[in-house]
Write a protein that binds this DNA or RNA. Structure first.
Length: 595
RNA sequence: GGGGUCGUAGCUCAAUUGGUUAGAGCAUCGGACUGUCGAUCCGAAGGUUGAGGGUUCGAGUCCCUUCGGCCUCGCCA
């Protein structure tokens, strides 16, 4: 075959006169009867080929048989385009190649969709024909950025003396956490491996093994329903370090994130990144992953409205609930219908039974700013002024409130805040606001199970000053966990781990995991802790989410070459699929369906 | 498991209260054309309206069932 001398995005004016060969796909085809133009495409760009019947009648004739997405090799001389014939839309737009010879490397069926217009095509079709979808520059750019991120990450950890070490995919199932993907064992009849939800225990064992600094870019598997930003199989940048405290781990990884931002976006991230306590995040933003690109903090106004005529508020507060709200700058432009339908329905998705609202308006007579709405009459003038003050509200703002338990109020207000921030364009789309969330509680009380549950995971260490509360007050222990959040998205999280077997046993005890259960599930790990485990801690980043943010997409499937649908199916390969009876027999498995 | 939304030509969409033979743009195929770059012009072909059932004189449209995509609640230590 005619082998390429250049890529399709490479040639410029200064290559004038060079004899070159390009390989690629026929991107578009323009036949003028006389001249034929072909845009040839590869991952690097597009170059215009010209076929002239005067100079090369045979090749010109051959060119008229070409079709879109055929694969060809073409040789000829680079020449500048004439005056006014340049195409500023493509990098190679100042030149073209007068073709002297072509070779058809492959023909192609008419594609199921046009490569050029695939951004308008249903995602279902794109996934079925991923190889066509992938030919689009947008998709190629995302794959390229993903590659570059992993390259930067590997270089960063290598130069910081970390070793990349692989851990098993065929592991042991544990009932904690997400649902496991199971893999039947042929050799051990009736037994199963589980695919790892993360390499958590292995990386801790590596620390016991003296590896000291480990990282891995590793696939993890959780058999839960996907979301726009979640897939059953996803990739973590997994890290663990010995002889470190929280500040050490945070320091290394904010520098890693800065290196990625610098390398991909050319942006300097100012270090150290800001930190915020879990409590502050939940109080002010309703979630542990606040979007700090805009302010609009949530405010508790229970103390202001405990004594008013509005029964919804007083009733809620009497039952131990709260009244909490936010003030949307310029939100008064929402009509009453918008508020009572769209916004209220939105909040209802998050269990809020209703949305109380005030528009902040100027009183015509007094000239004073006051609150207007159908419930305004239930509040005294003094209360209204106090509410305005609490929210620092201005004329034209909209105050929205939820009266419910604190948990429900936060659950509804947090996404409402994010939605309003976006709708009202309160932030710069290109901004990236990082924050480390720290001071997480070690446990939260699980009302249903009537026991404590780890907020992070059961291997997270308490802060040293709270260790004695393991005996006296487990609900108020602060952990050494940390999450890194950017623009309201959690991109990584980790903790300093428990490295003393006694403390680990105590935590299992509080989690209502019996000695026998702990032994069955984590026996190997507990044993390892007995053999001189160093103090250690680590973190894991979600690579997919990182790449989503860096490429500006809100669809995780856009940053995965071969993603799965919401039912966990691969539309390209049709996995999962039934298997031969012989395969089941070999595994001693029988399938049954029950409803 | 729940809620929402979508499914009509290869693709993106349209089709009045249920009413004649389901249309358009792009793509495809054929022809024309001296520089285009979303080429242009002329012509042709292209449909199990996701599937199944029902109501009706008549269903893309209404009802039931079902399949699939997406968003979301639950779930995701």
């Amino acid at each position: 075959m005619l082998k390429r001398t250049h890529s399709c995005g490479q040639l410029r004016l200064e290559d004038d006169g060079k004899k070159v060969t390009l390989n690629g796909w026929v991107h578009s085809y323009r036949d003028h009867g006389n001249l034929v133009f072909i845009d040839l495409r590869d991952r690097d760009g597009i170059t215009q080929l010209v076929f002239d019947p005067q100079s090369q009648p045979d090749v010109h004739k051959q060119s008229r048989g070409l079709r879109c997405e055929w694969v060809i090799a073409a040789s000829g001389a680079v020449r500048p385009r004439g005056e006014g014939l340049e195409n500023p839309k493509i990098d190679t737009g100042k030149i073209e190649i007068l073709i002297e010879k072509i070779e058809i490397l492959n023909t192609a069926e008419t594609p199921a969709f046009e490569i050029d217009g695939a951004d308008k095509v249903s995602e279902e079709l794109r996934l079925k024909h991923r190889y066509l979808d992938m030919r689009r520059p947008e998709m190629q750019n995302r794959l390229k950025i993903r590659h570059k991120v992993t390259k930067i990450v590997r270089d960063f950890f290598d130069s910081a003396d970390f070793w990349e070490i692989e851990t098993p995919f065929l592991g042991k199932s544990t009932p904690e956490g997400a649902r496991d993907f199971l893999v039947p064992s042929r050799l051990c009849v009736g037994e199963f491996y589980a695919l790892p939800q993360s390499p958590q225990l292995f990386k801790q064992v590596l620390m016991v093994g003296g590896v000291d600094k480990y990282f891995q870019i590793v696939r993890c598997f959780r058999d839960e329903d996907p979301r726009a930003d979640r897939q059953a199989e996803f990739t973590q940048i997994d890290v663990e370090m010995s002889f470190v405290d929280m500040d050490d781990v945070i320091d290394v990884h904010q520098r890693m994130v800065a290196a990625v931002w610098e390398g991909i976006l050319g942006k300097k991230v100012s270090l150290p990144m800001r930190r915020m306590s879990y409590k502050e995040a939940v109080d002010d933003y309703g979630v542990d992953r606040p979007d700090l690109r805009f302010d609009m903090k949530l405010k508790n106004i229970s103390d202001l409205v405990g004594d008013c005529q509005f029964k919804v508020f007083t009733g809620t507060i009497e039952k131990g609930g709260i009244v909490k709200g936010l003030c949307a700058p310029g939100g008064a432009k929402y009509s009453r219908g918008d508020i009572e339908k769209a916004l209220t329905n939105f909040a209802a998705d998050y269990d809020a039974k209703g949305l109380a609202w005030f528009k902040v308006a100027k009183n015509e007579e007094s000239g004073q700013v006051t609150l207007a709405s159908s419930i305004a009459k239930f509040f005294s003038d003094e209360q209204k002024q106090q509410i305005i003050e609490r929210f620092s509200a201005n004329e034209g703002d909209l105050i929205l409130m939820v009266a419910d338990t604190e948990a429900v109020a936060n659950k509804a207000l947090a996404p409402l805040r994010v939605k309003l921030g976006k709708d009202l364009e309160l932030y710069d789309e290109d901004a990236h606001e990082f924050v480390w969330i720290v001071d997480f509680p070690l446990f939260e009380w699980d009302e249903k199970a009537q026991r404590y549950d780890s907020l992070h995971h059961p291997f997270t260490a308490p802060v040293p000053e709270d260790v004695e509360k393991l005996e006296t007050d487990p609900g108020n222990i602060c952990s050494q966990a940390y999450d890194i959040v950017v623009n309201g998205s959690e991109i990584g999280g980790g903790s300093i781990r428990i490295h003393q077997p006694q403390m680990q046993a105590k935590v299992f005890d509080l989690l209502n995991i019996s000695k026998q259960q702990a032994q069955d599930r984590f026996g190997f790990f507990l044993k390892a802790l007995n053999y001189g485990a160093p103090p250690h801690g680590g973190i894991a980043f979600g690579l997919d989410r990182l790449v989503m943010i860096l490429t500006g997409t809100d669809n995780i499937r856009d940053v995965i070459a071969f993603p799965k649908t919401q039912k966990g199916q691969c539309l390209l390969t049709d996995a999962p699929s039934p298997v031969e009876q012989a395969q089941l027999d070999e595994l001693n498995l029988r399938t049954q369906t029950h409803h």
